[in-house]
């Protein structure tokens, strides 16, 4: 069953497209990483999926329902980011209670356990938390709500390294115990790489890639060697990334269309490309930079 289906999804702000003709679908019980640079439209996409804002055109279905103004979608999804705000009059423990009253799958034991582990004072107030603590608390809400669709928008903003690791571990454990559909956005893939099953890469509001992480790891290769030979071999192929290392030597990343033998025969070195590096290469504008965005529309 498809939890999310987008067809030709477009969102424009003041006639400037933020999301441009996006078509993809997400299966249930998967963890999908939404990867893209700042301003690629990640947050806009997630907010449309959560029903916060309305698409300009195209079709969005979440649980087979249009998410905007859908109580059904709202009841079955949660959107977590560092902008999540709670009434200043409520203490943290009260916020957990309120959240529990709204979400039927809410696991109070998990919520309290995590809050205790991450050292939250239940009588504290949300607006007194530091940036990292705020993200941690919001993520606890996102986990404990156990919503069939859990949307995490840059959930680790401000968290320190140890907390990040703990959080991702908790996310994975809880996901295995209670499978659900999770969308998690980040502009750096490397920190969530081990967690993900699928990657949805968007660039300038367009879908760039959507494939399982295992395929992403095989999707491209790096070829290193004398510049001329590299260019000869890759003639006609699009260079996803090129780097001239010193005089006459070049490193190029291309789509994995070459047999290892062929490369070795040419006397070149073949290296795998890490998925996170690949995403950086793919989302970089190799030619015109930001102007391309405007030229395309």
């Amino acid at each position: 069953m498809k939890v999310i289906e987008c067809t030709g999804l477009t969102k424009t702000y003041l006639r400037k497209p933020v999301l441009n003709n996006l078509t993809f679908s997400i299966e249930e019980n998967t963890i999908t990483g939404l990867i893209g640079r700042n301003g690629a439209g990640k947050t806009t996409l997630l907010k449309i999926l959560a029903g916060f804002i309305q698409e300009t055109s195209g079709k969005v279905r979440v649980f087979d329902d249009g998410p905007f103004n859908s109580l059904f979608v709202s009841a079955n999804s949660i959107f977590v980011d560092d902008q999540m705000i709670f009434p200043p009059a409520l203490q943290l423990q009260e916020i957990l209670e309120v959240a529990g009253s709204f979400y039927p799958n809410w696991d109070m034991k998990l919520a309290k356990g995590l809050a205790k582990y991450f050292d939250f004072d239940p009588k504290n107030y949300h607006n007194r938390l530091s940036k990292g603590k705020t993200s941690t608390f919001n993520s606890i809400i996102g986990l404990a709500a156990r919503c069939p669709l859990t949307i995490l928008d840059e959930p680790t903003t401000g968290m320190d390294e140890a907390v990040r690791k703990d959080f991702y571990r908790a996310l994975l454990k809880d996901y295995l115990a209670h499978p659900r559909t999770i969308m998690i956005s980040s502009h750096h893939l490397n920190e969530i790489e081990d967690l993900l099953e699928d990657v949805l890469l968007i660039k300038d509001g367009k879908k760039h890639l959507h494939l399982p992480i295992s395929e992403l790891k095989e999707w491209a290769i790096g070829i290193k060697g004398p510049t001329e030979k590299v260019l000869e071999l890759t003639n006609g192929e699009e260079l996803i990334y090129e780097n001239r290392i010193g005089a006459g030597t070049m490193y190029a990343v291309v789509k994995n269309n070459f047999a290892t033998l062929e490369i070795e025969k040419a006397g070149l070195e073949r290296t795998p490309v890490r998925a996170s590096d690949l995403c950086v290469y793919l989302t970089n504008d190799s030619r015109g930079g930001i102007d391309d965005v405007f030229n395309q529309c």
Binding site: P88, A89, Q91, D121, K123, N124, Y125, R128
Partner: peptide
């Protein structure tokens, strides 16, 4: 008060 004290008075 709200900033430093956690007791509710309303």
């Amino acid at each position: 008060w709200r900033k430093y004290v956690t007791v509710k008075i309303t």
